[in-house]
Design a protein around this nucleic acid. Structure first.
Length: 479
DNA sequence: TTTTGAGTTGTTCGA
DNA sequence: GTCGAACAACTCAAA
């Protein structure tokens, strides 16, 4: 029997993996392939933090496959060539994969599909990383959605997503030259300790994703509707990187959450559960937007923003990246990002608003930094969210919605424990002044061993002045 | 086709 | 401290 290639991409799991399930049902020997393609002619190649995550995930997937008697075959190179080569090498007569929705991948995969079919191979692609395909959502007039709430209603109206399928228990593997091992992939930057703190913060892989979901449903979901906004607490699902790499699927999350709500039959948990499912739907919405507006990562949806008064100022950008803006809530977030590859969602919004509005830096600069430093970097969510925050995307977000970093800090990190964790040089400062140290009397600063401009920076911009400047810039492109 | 209601996440000011 | 109004006006989606 000729082998079938199962091409893994952003679906690094065995359960609820339609391509793998279909391959298993066919009963022929498989080659489980992952291709690392760092070709520079593809836009948005993996960021540094994503590579750190990916390395551990590939290792985990390989272990799971070994338990089934096989292993993961990894190849490096231009995707098209690599697959062709493997087809020749193994004599495979079929290739299966689960779909990706990044514009450049759609184009590439379509080309691969037609080329392989022209050679007489059987090629099938499946739906694994969304609850419904982006083209399955339509308004009454047949257009794509541009507003979340109607999109959400349409998702709900479709009823329950398909139940996830279990992992295949039986697979046969076609023997194949395994290619490079993980270390040869160079997924970790040489001579840098930076990945270590990220590695210490996470346990990637399918089984860890499942555990994380269980832990969240058990301990985080209760109170989620209100407490998910608190970076000082642990009510986030922390599933975003698992979702991005497909170590868990939205269908699995949906089903588990609904069962949890049903098991407890309690109105307050229902509210929390639906609030969580809405967040899952936001991811789906971002994919819907990216599919229908493929320029989303690069071009402002609202073309008026082409003439917006962005400022070129590397010092601003660099201070923001390093968490040295002098605004503790922002700095805490940016340092959490650097150290863990992840930032709490509320803080992401405030930090992104600060970069684009207080510092008037182009939204794509923040987008690129997040792309490189987030372990959950996802083209759809990242692009859509930066456009949303900076006001040039979808949603009629009023331009005067400018987050006040002190107020946000007081509201969502009331005793300052989040700031203290990530900005330790302020850890002796009383919570009263923690979100605005420059307002503390000098005696208080002295007691806390804080010297502004020395141990911690002065605010890089004055909030009130920066806010007015941003409002002025937004007003200027209104007409 | 036209009309109508609504749109993730906020802040400031003044009473 | 709390509360409501103002911040503007536009586009989307459905009736």
């Amino acid at each position: 029997m000729k082998p079938l290639i199962v091409w893994f991409r952003q679906d690094l799991r065995l359960a609820d993996n339609p391509a793998l399930t279909a391959a298993s049902a066919k009963g022929c020997p498989i080659v489980a392939l992952y291709v690392l393609d760092e070709n520079k002619d593809m836009p948005w190649t993996l960021g540094a933090a994503s590579k750190v995550w990916l390395r551990a995930s590939l290792q985990s997937l390989d272990r799971s496959l070994k338990q089934l008697g096989g292993s993961l075959t990894i190849r490096i190179g231009r995707t098209q060539d690599t697959i062709n080569q493997l087809v020749n090498e193994t004599g495979a007569n079929a290739v299966y994969w689960n779909r990706c929705y990044e514009p450049s991948f759609i184009e590439r995969d379509a080309a691969i599909k037609s080329e392989l079919k022209a050679y007489g191979l059987e090629v099938q692609s499946f739906s694994a990383s969304l609850m419904y395909e982006p083209w399955e959502y339509k308004t009454r007039t047949g257009t794509p959605f541009k507003v979340f709430t109607p999109f959400w209603k349409s998702l709900i109206a479709k009823g329950k997503p398909t139940d996830p399928t279990p992992a295949p228990t039986r697979l046969t593997f076609h023997p194949v030259n395994q290619g490079p091992n993980l270390d040869n992939l160079r997924l970790l930057p040489p001579k840098s300790d930076w990945p270590k703190s990220i590695q210490a913060s996470w346990s990637p892989g399918e089984s860890n994703g499942k555990n994380q979901l269980c832990r969240f449903l058990d301990q985080g979901l209760g109170g989620y509707a209100d407490l998910r906004d608190r970076p000082d607490l642990s009510h986030c699902s922390s599933l975003s990187p698992f979702l991005h790499f497909g170590e868990i699927s939205p269908r699995q999350i949906w089903q588990a959450t609904v069962s949890q709500m049903a098991a407890f039959r309690n109105g307050s948990l229902d509210r929390d559960g639906w609030a969580f499912l809405r967040e899952i739907a936001w991811r789906e919405f971002s994919y819907h937007l990216l599919f229908h507006f493929p320029e989303l990562p690069d071009v402002a949806w609202n073309r008026k923003f082409n003439s917006f008064g962005w400022i070129e100022d590397h010092k601003f950008l660099s201070a923001w990246q390093k968490g040295q803006t002098g605004y503790p809530f922002i700095d805490a977030g940016m340092r959490q990002l650097w150290h863990t590859g992840w930032m709490h969602n509320r803080v992401r919004m405030v930090a992104a608003s600060f970069l684009t509005k207080h510092l008037l830096q182009h939204w794509t600069k923040g987008e690129k930094w997040f792309w490189d430093t987030l372990v959950d970097a996802d083209l759809a969510s990242n692009s859509a969210s930066w456009q949303w925050v900076s006001g040039c995307g979808f949603d009629a977000s009023p331009y005067f919605r400018i987050f006040n970093p002190m107020l946000q800090g007081q509201k969502f990190d009331p005793d300052g424990s989040y700031v203290k964790q990530w900005v330790p040089e302020l850890s002796n400062l009383s919570s009263k002044y923690l979100h605005a140290p420059w307002e503390a009397p000098s005696s208080v600063l002295a007691t806390a061993k804080v010297t502004l401009g020395k141990t911690y920076p002065h605010p890089i911009v004055d909030h009130k002045a920066a806010r007015l400047r941003a409002l002025e810039a937004y007003r200027a492109i209104k007409t």
